[in-house]
Amino acid sequence: MEIEDIIKEENKVYSKPRLLDDVHMHYCPGCSHGVVHKLLAEVIDEMGLAERTVGVSPVGCAVFAYNYIDVDWVEAAHGRAPAVATALSRLWPSNVVFTYQGDGDMAAIGTAESIHAANRGENIVMIFVNNAIYGMTGGQMAPTTLIGQKTATTPYGRRVDLNGHPLEITDILARLDGTCYVTRQSVHTPASVRKTKGCIKKAFENALAKKGTSVVEIVSTCNSGWKMSPVESNEWMERNMFEKYPLGDLKNI
């Protein structure tokens, strides 16, 4: 069989999502953000929502998410994405609004906005990328940084007596009456990527059905911030992160 016989439309098993722009991403090689972006682009396109989806990008590594996924975007101030999304959703109820937030955005500076938007049951999707570190500013401690984890601001490891405990924001959000679906996933294996895609789809379906707030946490790696290779990061995440942040649905109504 010749190569020309193989390269045919009917043999195609994969293509770049149509909504993902053909540009270089600023993310580090090995970073989870690119995979999460791809999943979002696929889900929005497959659900036929490209023309009525509005994303809210955070301050953090994903600040430039608006450069990569071909939907309307509002770039929020640090931590304020859920407030911005609240207005976008309430004023344009036929649109689907999602926030894309990191751990600092969701669980430190924006804790109030995250909890209250979810508690009001805003019909939005909150995508929460938890890599336990501040990537954009150079690897400082995040609210979700593990005990003992070394960062630029915990150079000898996070200590409870100095820095307090890792904040389990997703568990808190799951306890609120306004959330309908809260899940914690990862994108470090093909199987987990496929599973996470299904979760993101379910979250968007909930927003369309006006069921309340859906939260999809994606436990992620930051090999640059963690100062490991991408492979080592995946292994470290499996060994350390999943114990503190176990994968699975926390709430599914």
Binding site: V54, V56, V74, A76, A77, R80, A83, V84, A85, T86, A87, L88, L91, W92, A112, E113, H116
Partner: peptide
Amino acid sequence: VAAINMVYGGAASGK
């Protein structure tokens, strides 16, 4: 803080 950022979001959408 949340209120003004809701205003920001609403204003961004032309309302």
